[in-house]
């Protein structure tokens, strides 16, 4: 089966000092990112702020110029802006801040039917289509007359989903789909996303720092640290035996909603270094509990830990040793 989305060695650089520096200095945001998303599946892209996960999503949609590597959508390579324009009918983006992603002067009805107007697709009745899309996400048709600022967080999120679904896309990129939502509303949105996935055969790329979320929704996980993919693999395999010390720390750092599972030690110290001060060797060595000399000088290569499970580390722990 060909992957719906295939990313190979993707790199994104931001040019720096073009006006005064003279030389071609560049800030390296992403490098060597390789991953596949199969049709009908959900890939969880995990990382903290500054890991480059949002940049990666924008690069996939052609909103961020790439400086290396290849992107394929449904087998076709995406190179020029015309290629990206062609796939925009088949992809949709859900924003972390759903309210801000809706034009403040457009009603909900106008917002959810906007994709038809953009792509010049004739619809019999804008009002009818809006009602149909809103019904799909469980909102009443009267909601179409509201403005974004009149919506609650959960309602705005549903409107975002309705707009994303308008053109029946194959791929939905969801950036922190539950951030800022209450637990009960979060569950409703996740259930809605799951229903729509079944009904329309969607594939999701879920970008988040919330491990509980990816464990629940993702088939596969890709963990980013400072613009490098440090571990990819099936969700179950990664949670059962995380190979990278960063992944292990992330899983351990997640607060458990059970006072009997309180951790007493501190899983990870320090902060993600700024992208301007990228550490040499392995990016993670400044915070890694098991770093040795080689980690400070040489960048590790990808090692296979199991079927479809690989980790970028000099000393990958295998499942048997894990923990």
């Amino acid at each position: 089966m060909t992957a719906l989305l295939s990313v190979r060695d993707l790199a994104v650089d931001l040019p720096l000092g073009r006006w005064f520096g003279g030389g071609a200095r560049a800030l390296n945001i992403l490098a060597g990112v390789t991953m596949d998303l199969q049709p009908g599946r959900t890939l969880g892209l995990v990382g903290e702020s500054g890991s480059g996960k949002t940049t990666l999503a924008r690069a996939i949609l052609g909103l961020q110029p790439v400086s290396g590597g290849t992107l394929r959508f449904d087998g076709a390579e995406l190179r020029r802006s015309a290629d990206f324009r062609a796939i925009r009918r088949r992809t949709a983006l859900m924003f972390q801040d759903a309210t801000a992603s809706l034009s403040p002067r457009m009603t909900v009805g106008e917002a959810v039917t906007e994709p038809f107007v953009i792509h010049g697709i004739r619809i019999a009745s804008r009002r009818g289509k809006a009602a149909e899309l809103l019904a799909e996400v469980g909102l009443p048709a009267e909601m179409a007359a509201r403005y974004p600022h009149e919506l609650s967080g959960g309602q705005a999120r549903r409107v975002g989903v309705a707009r994303a679904l308008a053109l029946k896309p194959s791929l939905v990129i969801a950036d922190e789909p539950t951030a800022g939502l209450d637990v009960s509303v979060q569950a409703e949105i996740l259930n809605l996303m799951a229903d729509l996935k079944d009904r329309h055969g969607l594939s999701y790329l879920v970008i988040t720092h919330n491990l509980a979320l990816v464990r629940h929704v993702a088939d596969r996980i890709a963990v980013l640290y400072l613009g490098r993919l440090v571990e990819t693999g099936p969700t179950r395999a990664i949670f059962a035996g995380p190979g990278h010390p960063y992944t292990r720390s992330l899983i351990a750092a997640e607060p458990k909603p059970d006072p009997r599972q309180r951790r007493t030690d501190l899983a990870i110290r320090g902060e993600i270094p700024g992208i301007l001060r990228r550490p040499p060797g392995c990016e993670f060595h400044t915070r890694c509990p098991v770093a040795r000399d080689i980690c400070r000088s040489a960048a590790p290569a990808l090692h296979d830990l199991g079927p479809g499970h690989s980790v970028r580390c000099h000393f990958p722990e295998t499942t048997s040793k894990g923990g």
């Binding site: 909103l63 949709a92 924003f95 801040d97 992603s101 809706l102 403040p104 906007e114 953009i118 707009r163």
Partner: peptide, 15 residues
């Protein structure tokens, strides 16, 4: 975000 959303949906610059 709402302008990025428009671009992601494929809206033209004029629109």
């Amino acid at each position: 975000d709402f302008i990025v959303a428009e671009r992601a949906m494929g809206a033209s610059s004029a629109r």
